[in-house]
Simulated scan of single mutants.
Amino acid sequence: MDGWQNMDRGALDDAYANADYIPDAASFPPRWASDAAAFRAAVPGKLDVPYAEGSGAAFDLFHPAVPPQGLMVFVHGGYWRRFGKSDWSHFAAGGLAAGLAVAVVGYPLAPTVRIAEITRHVRSAVEAAATRVGGSIHLTGHSAGGHLVARLLMADAKPNCTDRIATCVPISPVADLRPLVRQTMNEDLRLDAASADSESPVLAQPVLRARAAVYVGAEERPSFLWQAQALGEAWSIPVHQVAERHHFNVIDDLRSPDTSLMAAVLGSAG
């Protein structure tokens, strides 16, 4: 949504209020948690692997039935303030079916930490997971998680395993944090102009050679369509609008290996 500079707080809050515009939005979080628990019960994994000190600084690592051909990392959203890794386990399904090990990353949440610290935690998580699984690394994340995986391609946040990162697919990312500074949620995020600039992928060029693409639901709020397009234009990478998908179900295509989204994550998209 270009023109955010002229919007007041109420309008900015509304522009990023996804749940208010999704039918039956309240049913999604409990369904995610239930599906994730069922997945963990059915699929063995190494759970709660710590990668740093502090609450939330752990990942769950799932292995495919065959020796893994690489590592997929999924970073969840929730505006850096909500959810945990255990709400998202089932989104490892597509990567596992494609022969990748999958790390579902947790991180400490705002307001306990600021976004810059969350970025550093996610970098540490990727580095720690990379020591456990060889081969190429495929990064993806949703919403705030899309922001976080995009940040790892920037010079000040790149992990020590950069030579192995093959793909990066932010899904519905918040790639420009400047519109958040005047929003009510910033009471938790505590962004100022300088930190919003430094944490915005749209304001810097990626330094890694990873193959990148942006995915966003075609039925998302105009602000998220704009965010996706802004990142695509800033980085000169493809932006894919997924038909009949909104902010809460655009990630469903991670659950199958045979989707355009997973093809991008795997690096096999045309």
Rank of each mutant, 00 (worst) to 15 (best):
V207E: 10
A166Q: 13
L225Q: 05
A36G: 10
T119H: 14
G141I: 04
A41D: 14
E127C: 12
A19P: 00
N249Y: 04
G56W: 04
K158E: 14
S172A: 15
A57Q: 14
A194V: 12
P111A: 06
A210E: 08
R164V: 05
W4I: 03
R40T: 06
L225G: 09
V174L: 06
Y16P: 00
L261Q: 12
R190Q: 15
D20S: 15
W235T: 12
R245N: 04
A92L: 10
H63N: 07
D87G: 02
P238C: 06
G141T: 05
L12R: 05
H246V: 03
P50V: 12
H76M: 06
S86G: 06
L203P: 02
H246A: 03
M1D: 12
A196I: 11
F39N: 11
A129L: 06
H240F: 07
L96Q: 08
A234T: 13
R209W: 00
A128P: 04
D8Y: 04
N6C: 01
E220G: 03
C168L: 05
G94D: 09
A17T: 04
M262S: 13
A150Y: 05
V202R: 09
M154I: 15
R182F: 01
V133F: 01
A234I: 06
V66M: 08
L71N: 08
D35T: 05
V239Y: 01
Y21P: 02
A26K: 13
S89L: 10
R120F: 00
D60C: 14
L189E: 05
E220S: 00
E233W: 01
Q5G: 09
A33T: 08
S124P: 00
P44Q: 11
V75S: 08
A155Y: 02
L96C: 10
A155Q: 14
Q205N: 06
S260Q: 13
R9T: 15
G45P: 06
A17R: 04
A11H: 06
D2W: 00
F83M: 07
M185S: 07
R40F: 11
H240G: 00
V216I: 15
L191R: 08
Q241G: 00
A52T: 07
L100G: 01
F83W: 10
A17H: 14
G135Q: 09
Q183M: 15
R120S: 13
A65K: 12
G267W: 03
L12N: 01
S195K: 04
D253H: 05
T167F: 05
D48V: 03
D48N: 15
D24K: 12
Q69D: 14
A103L: 10
G3K: 03
N186H: 11
A234S: 09
H76G: 09
D24F: 03
P111Y: 05
A92P: 08
H121A: 10
I118S: 01
T140F: 11
G95H: 02
L139I: 01
Q183Y: 01
P108Y: 04
V49A: 01
A213D: 04
V265D: 09
G141W: 03
S124I: 00
L180I: 05
W226I: 00
T167D: 07
V250Q: 03
V66P: 00
R81F: 02
G99P: 10
S124G: 15
L266T: 07
T119I: 15
H142C: 12
E233T: 14
V105D: 12
S27T: 15
T259K: 10
